[in-house]
Simulated scan of single mutants.
Amino acid sequence: MTGFDSLPEQVGRNFTRYSGHVFIAAAGIAVRAIAPHLRSKGVDPAVVAMDPQGANVISLLSGHLGGANELARQCAAITGGRAIITTATDCAGVPSLDMLAQERGLHIGDPDAIKDVNAALLEGRTVQVFDPLGCLGPLDPEAFVLLDTPDLWREGEPGVRVHWTVSPKRPGLVRLYAPVLCVGMGCRRGTPVSEIREFVERVLTENGLAVESVAAAGTADIKKDEAGLLLAAQELGLPLTFFDADTLKTVDAPNPSAMVESHVGTPGVSEAAALLLCERGELLVAKQKTSRVTVAVAGRTKCSQP
């Protein structure tokens, strides 16, 4: 490992490059080194500080979302020391919403509102939850009350909404986005990535669907070398699945195209690919087209659990 002359400069170069940092130093030294680089609990990496003997291993920053609590436990297991965890919910032995959401693979839309929900849990108040697909899994009935419809929502009280559609920001509301949407894509040869990505995002926005809820994208296997599609999926952070014509034909897509069938060998690509990815769930947005791009969106009928 290459040495360095200045700890603050070294931290500045590497703080956002890694998901976790372990300082073998006094906690105060670590605090001063990371302070200029802190942004928010939603994006800051895990930071752990331990003494040179590894007797005390402190979870210093991003205990839940960043994983510092778990990193501290791992370090303590190696050194034979004690993991020092100070997050309130862990100390009180009550569920932590941010950890629960992270374990279930849900995107947190309102990290700043988590404190309101966790505070309610610490005070022993029940937190209202609208989660129609059960993405959070079984919940403690003494801590959470499940709402059958959003009409039962109690305004002004902390709560959690787990969904795939966009909803207004409200005080005390944590919007969790369930990864249940699948996008089918097609394009003409040579369509630039910007045009494909912008149209995907436009279709989602115009239909009130959250881009954070898109879990996967699919297209025909003849597009395996289509740079625009490959880059669009990469920029959107989506795994891209390629389906052969025979597989796409197994789906009775509602909007077949004779032109697509003549070029691809199947009457539809975007709708069929979206439905296949969503385990033949529900087609939420039928095929939308520009002169060069085609997009459809389907939704799963259950929440995939990690």
Rank of each mutant, 00 (worst) to 15 (best):
R161N: 02
L121P: 08
F144W: 13
T205C: 01
V203E: 13
P138V: 02
L121I: 10
V160Q: 11
V160W: 02
V193E: 15
F199I: 01
V145E: 11
T165V: 14
L152E: 15
R202C: 10
C135N: 00
G159V: 10
D116N: 07
L147W: 08
H163Q: 10
R189E: 15
P141G: 06
G208W: 08
L121G: 10
G208V: 06
G134T: 09
E155D: 12
V127T: 02
E155P: 05
A210S: 15
E206P: 12
A120G: 06
L176Y: 05
G134I: 11
S167C: 10
E206H: 15
V183G: 04
P168G: 11
P141K: 00
L122F: 05
L147N: 06
A113F: 00
K115R: 08
V127M: 01
D112Q: 14
F199G: 09
D151C: 00
R175P: 01
P132L: 02
L133Q: 11
L136R: 01
P150L: 10
M185G: 13
D116M: 07
M185V: 15
G156R: 02
A120T: 03
N207P: 12
R197A: 12
L209P: 11
G156V: 05
P132H: 01
I196A: 06
V203H: 03
R175A: 14
P132T: 05
L133G: 03
R188C: 08
V129G: 01
D151W: 06
Q128K: 05
L133H: 12
D131H: 03
K115L: 10
P141W: 02
A120R: 05
V200H: 10
D116R: 06
P138I: 10
I114M: 05
P111W: 07
